[in-house]
Design a protein around this nucleic acid. Structure first.
Length: 1196
RNA sequence: GCCCGAAUGGCGGAAUCGGUAGACGCGCUGGUCUCAAACACCAGUGAGCUCACCCUCGUGCCGGUUCGACUCCGGCUUCGGGUACCA
């Protein structure tokens, strides 16, 4: 072997995690170093084996609940942005444990959602399968980072054990109404009691919400009692907290589905480019508006960032104002508007309706019908966001109709304009152009009048812009003249109410939450529809009554479908599920026809369940006895099947007809038998066959397994059962012996499961309740919630709403889900895009024998493309597509330019690896672009060679590079810019990853990901390791007494780390460790009394290395159970302070003064110094400012 | 458009309550060690200038308050997030 063969060095050593080996001739440096990969594996296993992070409910320690926002397990796996928050929360959890708290720090998955469904549509793979795989991947990635999650509490929203309770919450919402008097949700029974006693007088009007408000007609108690079931149902729908109403949606007939605003671009669907229209559709909604006031007020009591609270306040958008009715000319109707500025009512010069407003069709005059229809159609095709954002292009249309001004009796024209949204307020505004900028723009555009009714405090040019401020004095306003705006508002409301023109009202911007989705991959809504009249053939859906499932029938399992798409008639995917309908439980057949003896054979008539009470009782006893005497195989299988582990409720030793079967799934009609050895007996076999036959006749499928099969191949057996359950197609309707009612076919939105999950973690395995009151009372709510600010008005509002509701119905004791909220900034990715030019070939082609490619064609260079130094380029004739390097600008030619994302791995530093890009297109996109041209300045690449613009092959290509355009964006699979934490873990270890992500900057700040500084953090951990080891990597910690300097470093660091963690300043925490490490290295300190406390302090940040060093220090238990060190002020005190001395606010010199002096003494000391004289230059100071222990400033 | 944030050296960032701008790390430059490279260690590193001093300038832009402003106020610019069916 060569003498130098064991030199293994450099970055490759870091990458592989192999310990460093030094030159054999340099024994001083030859030592094994910090071997992170071994250490991390060792401790991750130890934590798992010892269940180090398992949390118990209760105990003497104070509780602390740390929660991360539910991750959605996307197909791209965990990216480096995800762990940012998890690392921070993990550090905090570990810190709190060291501080003596009982910390709940769980993790689970928000597993229903659109991406899995989209993937399913594309590939046909079941979302349940892909979701499962994604979760497994996430879990593996999370495990590598060394989190202290209690995985025994994991929840997944897509599992029946979980969504059973999501459905349960929905049922509670369905059965409740919001009592405005008591300000809380109550059971509908209390409302019905009122109706029965006094009917409805209209006073509960506030809870009647919807997109456009409407009033429910009053009725008497007598009328209520005589209402049909259907009528009662309709009335109650106006009060239920979960109700079936109508809402505006983006309907895409081409895709047969509803789209998010996100998915609509320029009036067509982003996917496929089909036209989209606004449509009013029946829609399940949650009455979050009932809680608007409480959601707003309770913000004051929680420790969330001001920005999030402000965002929620604005989102709820409480505004006080009034409704005013404008009577229509020549119509028996009125336009109701809502305004916060009734003081400006005399300034109304027109009224604008939303294009969708129901009156539009009624009032438009014949003359304007065509124009109005055209306008409505255009506006319909825009998303709400586009309509609001497009402020520059004012658009609108006169309807030909007029309203009568309620005070002046003047004719006021009625317009429609897309800036008015149907979903907000009444869908109509009274326009006051002089005092509202949107109205001003509209009036200016259409040349409408702008009467001024407020005199601003200062001069104002009303020609140029409106005066929107709520100040000034009313003019030209009859009875309001001379009043200040605020007084005028009060007076106007008073007058409006007095004259019966409208009423003072509080309006919220907040709308009820649409709760139904035309999607497959979500929780089924536990509702079925019963005909209003007892008739089998229901023609009209209006005759159906929505009926909730009984709680005992939950979960309503998501059915199987053949495709994850809407039906041809535009119904949601669930409508595809065969036989998916509610069937009331069959009643026992009437007595008679059966035999008393439990024998069967010819002439035996099976029935669904056995009939006589005596027999039933006997069978139950038998079943109970069977359960007690279960075989090991049966027991084992029961453990695997119980609790709906397969997704379906399984019963064991259950009586069916006269048999007691081992296991049965009633909903899927599947019987599972586990046979002992005696089943080999021929007589027994005949009996079994007969029994199977009867069960089949009853509609049950029968699966048989032997004991051996179950015991030896358990998972296969379970899989087989699960698959059979999932694929079983049930007989429909009458075949099953009962009526079938259609289920609701929309599913719940992605946020349903995440609106209450923090409660499930408290009691994740409870089969009887969503959470026991006892555990809910112990854990209460989340003490620290960590997640992205992008959830400010979505999830964070919904979870507050559900929490308040569950509080109202007495199930939990807290009104807010999270006491404190920290927002983690998004880690952005750097995406790379490639520029594509289209339609730029000229028609001319030439042929040339001199070139490697026989024919060629010219490529016309648009003038706008600067930087090519040529206006035409000759390209090979078979080139199909032209990619253009990013350095070539073509600002004016945007129409012919397109960008495609490039996987970032293929374009490091924006330099595209062309061969790999072609290969990737071929493999991943099934797109053959092998004859594409890649154009750069002066050259292009084609089929493996570089050419100049005259098609000469270039031999020296080392400086030629095709550039992609990089952009800082959200990390996402679709942008092909995902960076995973795995690579970092492999190269540097989890501890380095953890500390590096924290070191990147403040937790709440968004930043693009880069790994530039990671070696510094890794280097710190190595130096920290080296504090404990000698040159030969021998453990070298000694028991010597610490010096004053060493103690100062220690206590300073403990203090700083404690403060930094408490205020979530993890980046500065990491630097404090670095500083301490540098200083102790300088001091050559290897003393236990210094290093041991530091190991504890470091353990929340870098738990693996801390555990290893803790063990090496001689401890047997985990460092997790240690106590966080306490700093002692006495080691930190100094005897003097070096004052920065400023002259006229500019730092001039520093001067050391003893501590404990008063400001006068300090001033005297400083003024006596030589330097001061130099800077005073003979002048007398005007003033001397002394801030003790801070600064001295001399003003000359 | 509207709502919520952010902007500090070549880069990530620090300055916690209006009091020394640039901690810590990366990168870069020079040095020690080495045949050499790498690793490690040491030193320097905001810009300008007549270059270890001194001075001037300097926290996105314009203005203000203050003895003193990255920090507070008014007005902008650019970037990021949300905008109700992405999660």
């Amino acid at each position: 072997m060569a003498p130098f063969s064991n030199w293994s060095i450099g970055k490759s050593a870091i990458k592989s995690g192999i310990p460093y080996l030094r030159s054999p001739f340099n024994s001083v440096r030859k030592f094994m170093e910090y071997n992170f990969s071994e250490i991390e594996k060792k401790w991750q296993k130890a934590w798992k084996d010892n269940q180090t992070y398992r949390v118990t409910d209760g105990g003497s320690k104070p509780k602390y609940y740390v929660l991360d926002m539910f991750p959605y397990p996307s197909g791209a796996g965990l990216h480096v942005g995800h762990p940012l928050g998890y690392i921070a929360s993990d550090i905090f959890s570990r810190y709190k444990r060291l501080k003596g708290f009982n910390v709940l720090h769980p993790m689970g998955f928000d597993a229903f959602g659109l991406p899995a469904e989209q993937y399913a549509i594309q590939t046909g793979r079941h979302p349940a399968d892909t979701t499962k795989e994604n979760i497994a991947r996430y879990r593996e990635q999370l495990d590598k980072i060394g989190f202290s999650f209690d995985w025994s509490r994991e929840v997944r929203t897509c599992e029946p054990e979980y969504y059973r309770w999501t459905q349960w919450v929905f049922l509670q919402l369905f059965k409740s109404w919001y009592n405005c008097k008591t300000q809380k949700a109550e059971s509908l029974d209390t409302l019905i009691a009122v109706f029965e006693k006094e009917g409805f007088k209209g006073e509960a009007h506030q809870v009647l919400t919807g997109d456009i408000e409407h009033d429910l007609a009053p009725f008497t108690a007598e009328e209520w009692k005589n209402f049909s079931e259907k009528e009662k149902s309709d009335v109650l729908m106006n009060f239920r907290l979960a109700y079936l109403g109508e809402a505006w949606v983006n309907w895409c007939p081409g895709l047969g589905t509803v789209l998010a605003n996100d998915e609509v671009k320029d009036g067509v669907s982003e996917r496929g480019g089909y036209p989209v229209e606004r449509k009013r559709m029946p829609q399940w909604s949650l009455r979050i508006t009932a809680y608007a006031d409480r959601l707003l007020n309770d913000l004051n009591g929680i420790d969330w960032s001001d920005s999030i609270k402000e965002a929620q306040r604005n989102w709820i958008g409480r505004s006080e104002g009034t409704s005013i009715f404008f009577r229509l000319e020549n119509h028996d109707a009125a336009v109701e508007v809502f305004t916060t500025r009734p003081d400006t009512v005399f300034g109304v010069s027109f009224v604008t309706l939303a294009p969708e407003h129901e009156l539009v069709a009624k009032i438009t005059t014949a003359e304007y019908k065509a124009a109005v229809d055209a306008y409505v159609n255009t506006a319909k095709n825009k998303s709400e966001r586009e309509r609001q954002a497009d402020v520059k292009n004012v658009s609108g249309q006169f309807t030909g109709a007029y309203v009568i001004h309620p005070f002046t009796a003047k004719k006021v024209p009625v317009w429609i304009g897309e800036y008015v949204l149907a979903g907000y307020g009444t869908g109509a505004v009274m326009a006051v152009p002089a005092h509202d900028s949107r109205d001003f723009a509209f009036a200016s555009h259409f040349g409408l009048e702008k009467p001024q009714v407020i005199q601003p405090p200062a001069a104002w040019n009303f020609e140029k812009e409106s005066f929107d401020e709520k100040e000034g004095v009313c003019i030209n306003s009859d009875f309001l003249d001379g009043l200040e705006v605020k007084a005028a508002i009060r007076k106007a409301i008073e007058e409006i109410e007095k004259r019966g023109l409208g009423k003072g009202k509080i309006n919220f911007r907040l709308r009820d939450a649409a709760f139904g989705r035309q999607r497959y991959w979500g929780e089924p809504i536990p509702i079925y529809y019963k005909p209003a009249v007892s008739s089998s053939a229901v023609e009209n859906t209006a005759d159906l009554i929505p009926v909730p499932l009984d709680e005992s029938e939950l979960p309503l399992i998501l059915p199987e479908v053949d495709k994850f798409l809407p039906t041809e008639t535009g119904e949601p995917p669930l409508a595809r599920a065969r036989g998916w309908a509610y069937r009331p439980h069959p009643l026992p057949l009437s007595e008679g026809g059966g035999s008393d003896a439990f024998t069967f054979g010819e002439g035996y008539t099976p029935r669904f369940f056995t009939t006589s009470p005596e027999k039933w009782k006997l069978l139950k006893e038998w079943a109970r006895a069977h359960r007690k005497a279960a075989t090991p195989a049966e027991d084992l299988l029961w453990q695997e099947l119980r609790g709906k582990k397969t997704g379906f409720q399984i019963r064991r030793q259950h009586a069916i007809d006269v048999f007691i079967v081992d296991f049965v799934c009633l909903s899927r009609k599947l019987v599972i038998e586990v046979d002992g050895g005696y089943h080999n007996d021929p007589g027994q076999q005949e009996y079994d066959a007969q029994r199977t036959l009867v069960l089949n006749e009853l509609g049950f499928k029968v699966m048989r397994f032997t004991n051996e099969q179950v015991l030896q191949r358990t998972s296969e057996t379970v899989n087989e059962i699960a698959n059979t359950l999932r694929t079983t197609v049930l007989p429909e309707g009458e075949e099953r012996g009962g009526v079938a009612y259609p289920y609701e076919t929309t599913t719940m939105p992605g946020w349903a499961g995440s609106s209450w999950y923090f409660l499930r973690y408290m009691d994740p395995h409870n089969e009887n309740e969503f959470v026991s009151r006892e555990k809910a009372d112990y854990w209460q709510n989340v003490d620290l919630y960590l997640g992205g600010a992008e959830h400010a008005t979505g999830h964070l509002l919904y979870v507050r709403f559900w929490t308040k509701f569950l509080y109202d119905i007495g199930k939990i004791g807290v009104q807010e889900p999270a006491k404190k909220l920290i927002n983690q900034g998004m880690i952005q990715g750097m995406s790379e895009k490639i520029k594509i030019k289209q339609s730029i070939f000229s028609g001319t082609t030439t042929t040339s024998d001199a070139h490697p490619v026989a024919s060629s064609k010219s490529f016309l260079m648009p003038q706008e493309m600067e930087g090519l130094n040529s206006t035409t380029v000759t390209l090979p004739i078979d080139s199909k597509q032209v990619f253009v390097s990013a350095e070539i600008e073509d600002s004016k030619d945007e129409l012919m330019t397109f960008f495609n994302y490039v996987p970032i791995q293929l374009s490091k530093n924006s330099k595209l690896e062309i061969d790999k890009y072609l290969e990737w297109n071929h493999k991943e996109r099934n797109n053959d672009i092998s004859s594409a041209v890649f154009l750069i300045k002066n050259f292009y690449w084609f089929k493996g060679n570089w050419y100049d613009y005259s098609m000469n092959v270039i031999s020296n290509t080392s400086n030629l590079a095709f550039l992609t355009k990089s952009e800082v964006e959200k990390m996402s699979k679709s942008k092909l810019n995902v960076e995973t934490p795995d690579d970092i873990c492999d190269q540097y270890g989890a501890d380095t990853l953890r500390m590096y992500e924290m070191f990147l900057g403040p937790i709440d700040q968004a930043k693009p990901w880069n790994t530039n500084g990671i070696t510094g953090v890794h280097g710190f951990l190595r130096r920290f390791w080296r504090l404990f080891h000698d040159d030969k990597n021998g453990f070298a910690v000694n028991e010597e007494a610490a010096t004053k300097a060493e103690l100062k470093v220690l206590h300073k660091t403990i203090k700083k780390i404690g403060e930094d963690v408490e205020r979530f300043s993890f980046n500065t925490g990491v630097s404090s460790f670095m500083i301490a490490c540098n200083e102790l290295t300088e001091l050559k300190c290897r003393k236990r009394s210094i290093l041991e406390p530091l190991v504890i302090a470091l353990s929340p940040f870098a738990p693996h290395i801390a555990e290893e060093l803790w063990e090496k220090l001689g401890h047997t238990g985990s460092v997790n159970f240690a106590q966080f060190p306490v700093y002692d002020e006495q080691y930190l005190t100094e005897d003097s302070f070096e004052y920065p001395v400023q002259v006229n606010g500019k730092l001039r010199f520093k001067y050391s003064v003893a501590l404990g002096l008063n400001p006068q003494q300090i001033e005297k000391e400083v003024m006596g110094s030589e330097e001061v004289q130099k800077w005073l230059d003979g002048k007398t100071p005007k003033k001397v400012i002394v801030v003790p222990n801070k600064i001295v400033n001399i003003v000359v």
